[in-house]
């Protein structure tokens, strides 16, 4: 099992203690920690040939994007990145039309939730699936075990909750008659939970403010045969993130047998997102 990182910014990239990274391509992805041009990606790949560099192209694309998207895919094929994360099926279609060999990662954020559909995409030439963050650990493990696709699971970071094409902060501040800010912390009063709203060129993203601490489930993922775990640097201090990567790398090398690792990282908090919390969807009986 390998570790992929999402670093907080370009200047933070240090892959000493991880196996690779996810880089969000500027203008073609959303909800990235930072955004990279093709030239920057090319440089990072050539400087880290022993690492698995995945590129995120997880935007919803419109007609006007398609011709540029073709060029981007052709260039990424030549750069030899490890794979492309996609949300929009246009990318799978273009891979077919352009006869590309580049591996793809099914990354439809909240939809990657069962093994049958993972297998469907595998049968259509998709090699990896980044599993949804709203399913339980049991479901995650079942998918990893039953599907032929190689799975990725985000274990540390602030969960991405929603994305809108609307410029929700511009709209909000326009109504207020104040200068627009591109980030706002909001509080849902009943649950008393905070969310971060971030506006970017393609729309507005919502994130849970609490960090998901999935360090305690890494062993289960390892035993199930998970291909990659993802750690997103939403920690307060950058050096803490590097330490987490270093410790996690060692933990995996030791076949996840070190109890001290789990104890140490209880400090990241007790929020485990939906790993142990099943959502409901039916609130009353029909009648």
């Amino acid at each position: 099992m390998k570790i992929l990182s999402e670093f907080r910014k370009k200047s933070s990239i240090d892959m000493t203690y991880c196996d690779g990274a996810i880089l969000a391509l500027k203008d073609y992805s959303v909800m990235g920690k930072d955004y990279y041009t093709l030239e920057e990606i090319e440089k990072i790949v050539s400087n880290n040939l022993d690492k698995d560099i995945f590129v995120s192209l997880n935007r919803n694309f419109f007609n006007a994007d398609i011709s540029y998207l073709k060029d981007i895919l052709l260039r990424l094929e030549n750069i030899k990145v490890k794979g492309i994360l996609f949300y929009d099926l246009a990318i799978l279609q273009l891979k077919k039309e352009l006869n590309l060999k580049i591996p793809l990662v099914w990354n439809q954020t909240h939809m990657v939730n069962n093994y049958k559909t993972c297998d469907y995409y595998f049968s259509r030439g998709v090699e990896y699936a980044l599993l949804g963050k709203e399913i339980t650990l049991d479901e995650v493990v079942e998918i990893i075990k039953k599907s032929s696709i190689k799975c990725m699971v985000e274990v540390v970071g602030c969960a991405s909750v929603a994305f809108s094409k609307r410029k929700l902060l511009t709209n909000y501040y326009t109504d207020l008659g104040k200068e627009v800010k591109n980030e706002l912390n909001i509080l849902e009063r009943v649950s008393n939970d905070n969310y971060i709203v971030k506006e970017e060129n393609s729309g507005t993203g919502f994130y849970k403010e609490k960090i998901t601490n999935g360090t305690g489930i890494i062993k289960d993922l390892y035993n199930a045969g998970c291909e990659y775990i993802i750690m997103r640097d939403d920690l307060e201090k950058e050096e803490d993130f590097y330490e987490l990567l270093k410790d996690t790398k060692q933990y995996i090398l030791e076949k996840c047998s070190l109890d001290s690792y789990v104890s140490k990282y209880k400090k990241l908090g007790d929020y485990t997102n939906f790993f142990f919390n099943k959502t409901i969807y039916k609130v009353k009986k029909n009648g």
Partner: peptide
């Protein structure tokens, strides 16, 4: 408000699964 399918606000805020 968000792209349909690309929203789990309901899951996180009320524990009710929007996409089910």
């Amino acid at each position: 408000t968000c792209y349909s399918g690309r929203c789990a606000l309901s899951n996180y805020v009320t524990n009710r699964d929007a996409n089910r």
